[in-house]
Simulated assay, not measured.
Amino acid sequence: MRIGLDMMGGDYAPAEAVKGVKLFLSKASDAHLMLIGDEQALTPLLTEAALDQSRYTVVHSSQVIGMNEHPTKALKEKPHSSISIGFHLLQNKKIDAFISAGNTGAMMVGAIYSIKVIEGIQRPTISTILPREDGSTGLLLDVGINADCKPENLVQFAILGSLYAKYIQGVENPKIGLLNLGEEEGKGNLLAQATYPLLKENPLVNFVGNVEGRDVFKNTADVIVCEGFTGNVVLKLAESFHDIAVRRNIKDEYLDRFDFEQYGGTPVLGVAEPVIIGHGISGERAFCNMIVLAEQMIQTKLLEKIRESFVVTPEA
């Protein structure tokens, strides 16, 4: 398998990206890495890292899309950027997955318009890992790219999240919960009220009902579904737990699990090829873990499972 990595994306690239590659290559893997970036900047870092040259190939890019650039305009005007080249390679089957911690908007535009959405899926989604108090992990989606949703969107997010939990997190029959302000059926706003019966009737998900904010970090549900506005608020709140612990010098094993670097990045679920977006401040562990996630997505044939599910999905 060939995994493409944008070496220029992120606040600490390419140095941290090279360190992440070194960390990944220290593990046993059949993956061959395609490192996309400025050769002049990468060569001394790769030489210093003393990596096994048979396990990676450098693909030169002469441009970089900045974090604050307009996504569509930048992709159009910078065809030789690391992100543009990455999507070109993925679109033409030269790589099997593409990873970047660069401009999130450019990554989303590239994923949707270059790679395309899987037939039957209305909108792609992104998720976040939820560290649970019992030591396990849950999943929350959407966490930001779909601020406004229809009930049918949330049902599709539930199916995508269920497949991700099963094949990537190893949960045999994931429990799906709808984030709400009460447990009882009929609670919540119009979106939640309309989504509940659709989830309840859908044979592709193991729906367990509404879950409240106090259930987010418990094992009440393995996958929690909501629209992106609420999901992003929960995500940023969760990230702040680790930041507060670090600032206050609090040493706690559970709070340490809120460090995003442990999980790397998030896949864009619903597009036709594996695309993983990392945090702009990603360090070496995050880059390494994003490569591991891409490897898992390819090995488990997650996208094939998604295509199969949406062929028979009534909502598709």
Rank of each mutant, 00 (worst) to 15 (best):
P174C: 01
K166S: 14
L160E: 02
K150E: 07
V155G: 00
N173E: 15
G161K: 06
A165D: 07
L154K: 06
G144F: 07
K150S: 05
I168R: 04
L140K: 04
I145D: 00
Y167E: 09
D148K: 10
G161Q: 02
A165I: 06
E133P: 13
S162E: 12
N146P: 01
R132V: 01
Y167P: 02
I129S: 12
Y167R: 10
E172S: 14
V143C: 11
T125V: 13
D134H: 13
P151Q: 04
I168C: 11
V143N: 08
T128S: 15
V143H: 03
V171H: 13
N153G: 04
T128K: 09
F157D: 01
V155F: 01
T125F: 04
L139W: 05
K166P: 03
G138S: 13
K175Y: 00
K150Q: 14
S162M: 12
Q169C: 12
E152W: 02
L130Y: 02
S162L: 01
V155K: 05
I126R: 10
P131W: 12
L140G: 01
I129D: 11
I145F: 00
T137Y: 15
T125E: 05
D134S: 14
F157T: 06
L163R: 00
T128E: 08
P151C: 05
S162A: 14
P131K: 12
Y164V: 08
D134N: 14
I126G: 08
I145A: 04
L139R: 13
I129P: 12
L141P: 03
